[in-house]
Simulated scan of single mutants.
Amino acid sequence: MRIVAALLAFVFSAGVLLADCRPDQVELRGAFGKARFLVELADTPRERAVGLMHRESMAATAGMIFIYEQPQAVSFWMENTLIPLDMIFIDQSGTVARIHENAIPLDRTPIPGGADILAVLEINGGLAAQIGLAAGDVLRHPGLPQDLAVWPCAAD
C-alpha cells in the first residue's frame, strides 16, 4: 500500500513540477491531473520486437514507449513477457485511443490497438486504472509530431 501511495503522490501533479519534454519520459494529462513516467524508447523494429520481454519486474514509475514511423494498425502480444502490463494506444495527436489493462504474462493472444496508432505506452498492469487514465486523455513526448499534438512539448 505504501508503494501505491508513493506512486500516486509522484504521478499526480498537485506537487509535481513537470519538466520540459525529454526522450526518457512521457507525460499524461486527463481528468485525473497529470502523470509522468520514465520510459525506455523502442523506435526501431528490433527494439519494438523485444519490448519488455524477459523482465521480472519494472519500477512503478517506469514504462516503455513504442513509436512507429507512421500511424498504423498495431497488435501486441505477451510472449516472453513475464509481468502484467497495461497497454496505452496513442494516435498521432497524442490522444489515448484505447487502453488494454492487465495483459496476461506469456499469453500469445493478439491484443489489437486499433487503426491509426502512432505510439504505445506500456506500464505496469493495473496502473492505468489506479491513476484514472481513460481514452481521450493525452500524452506528450518529443518523439510524437509536435505540429499535430493536442499537448505539444512547448505547452504547459
Rank of each mutant, 00 (worst) to 15 (best):
G126C: 02
Q92V: 09
W151Q: 06
R2G: 12
D116L: 00
I131C: 04
A49R: 11
V150C: 01
T109L: 10
L127V: 15
A119L: 05
A49M: 12
F76Q: 00
I99M: 07
D147K: 00
R2N: 14
D86T: 05
A119H: 10
V50W: 12
A155Q: 13
A128V: 02
V150T: 13
E79S: 10
R108F: 11
G132Q: 04
I65T: 11
C21F: 00
P23A: 14
L82V: 13
R22Y: 01
V96Y: 03
V39T: 09
R108S: 15
A6E: 15
L8C: 08
I67K: 07
V16I: 07
L106A: 08
P145C: 05
L121P: 03
M53C: 12
E47F: 09
A9T: 09
M64D: 06
S57T: 13
P84M: 12
D91E: 13
L7A: 14
I83Y: 10
A103E: 02
I83D: 10
G33W: 09
V120W: 08
R48P: 04
A155I: 05
L7S: 06
P71T: 05
R46D: 14
I131N: 01
I3S: 07
V26Q: 11
M87A: 12
L18Q: 11
N124L: 15
A135S: 13
T44C: 07
Q72Y: 01
V74P: 03
T44I: 06
H54D: 15
T81I: 08
V96F: 04
A49E: 11
N102S: 07
Q130V: 12
T95V: 10
A6D: 13
P112W: 08
S13L: 08
C21S: 03
G132A: 00
A19N: 09
T109G: 07
A135G: 07
A154H: 11
L127I: 14
T109W: 13
P152W: 04
G136I: 00
R29N: 06
I117A: 01
M1Q: 10
V74T: 06
L106S: 06
L139P: 04
A128G: 02
A60Y: 11
I99A: 01
V50N: 04
D86N: 05
P110I: 06
V96M: 03
C153Y: 11
S57F: 11
D147S: 11
E69A: 15
C21A: 04
R46N: 08
A128K: 03
A60R: 04
V11A: 06
V11M: 08
G136P: 00
Q25D: 14
L148Y: 02
L7W: 09
V150N: 01
L28R: 00
P23L: 13
G113Y: 03
A31K: 00
P23V: 14
D24L: 10
S13D: 15
A19D: 12
T81E: 08
R22V: 09
F10K: 14
D137W: 04
